[in-house]
Simulated scan of single mutants.
Amino acid sequence: MEKLSAKLRERGLPGTEFAENCLSHLYHRNRRPNTLELNYTSIRLFLEFLKKERLTHLEGVSGKHLEAFVEHEQDRGMKPISINGRLDSVKAFLRHLIEMEIYGFG
């Protein structure tokens, strides 16, 4: 878990502390290492996408950003099943933030 947090911090992405919180929550719920790694990758790719879109705070995320992220992944040649898995992880991440009252969806 500490390695994933360190990798996130190194990148200087928006919402890093929230991503760490979400991954920590999964870790404490005894999720398998592979599950943590898959969630980490999906969340990291989403946060990197937001950074390229010049979003500095997660409060500005909207459904349009999720749609654009899906298109971005399609343009990268990802298969639909992989994109669906990534999107599921990102939606779970955003849902976690809403439930923790950290974030209100814009």
Rank of each mutant, 00 (worst) to 15 (best):
Leu4Lys: 00
Arg95Ala: 15
Ser82Arg: 02
Arg86Glu: 14
Met1Gln: 05
Pro33Gly: 03
Phe18Gly: 01
Arg11Val: 15
Glu20Arg: 02
Gly12Ser: 11
His72Gln: 14
Glu10Arg: 04
Arg29Gln: 12
Ser62Leu: 13
Phe46Gln: 04
Glu53Leu: 14
Arg31Asp: 05
Glu2Cys: 08
Phe69Thr: 05
His96Trp: 09
Arg32Tyr: 03
Glu48Asp: 04
Asn34Gln: 04
Leu94Ile: 14
Glu17His: 06
Asn34Met: 04
Arg95Thr: 14
Glu71Trp: 10
Asp88Phe: 08
Leu55His: 05
Leu4Arg: 00
Glu37Phe: 03
Arg31Gln: 05
Glu71Phe: 09
Lys51Thr: 07
Thr41Glu: 02
Arg11Pro: 10
Glu73Arg: 08
Phe69Met: 13
Asn34Phe: 01
Gly85Ala: 05
Arg95Asp: 15
Arg29Phe: 04
Ile98Glu: 15
Glu10Gln: 12
Arg32Ile: 04
Pro80Met: 13
Lys91His: 09
Ser42Asp: 12
Asn39Leu: 07
Ala19Tyr: 02
Gly60Pro: 09
Arg76Cys: 11
Leu36Gly: 00
Leu8Gly: 02
Gly15Pro: 06
Leu94Met: 12
Glu37Ser: 03
Lys79Cys: 09
Lys51Asp: 10
Cys22Trp: 02
Asn30Glu: 11
Gly85Ile: 01
Arg31Ser: 03
Thr35Asp: 00
Leu8Ala: 10
Ser89Glu: 07
Leu47Val: 07
His96Asn: 11
Lys52Trp: 13
Arg54Pro: 10
Gly77Ala: 14
Phe18Asn: 02
Asn84Cys: 08
Lys3Ala: 12
Leu26Thr: 02
Leu23Asn: 02
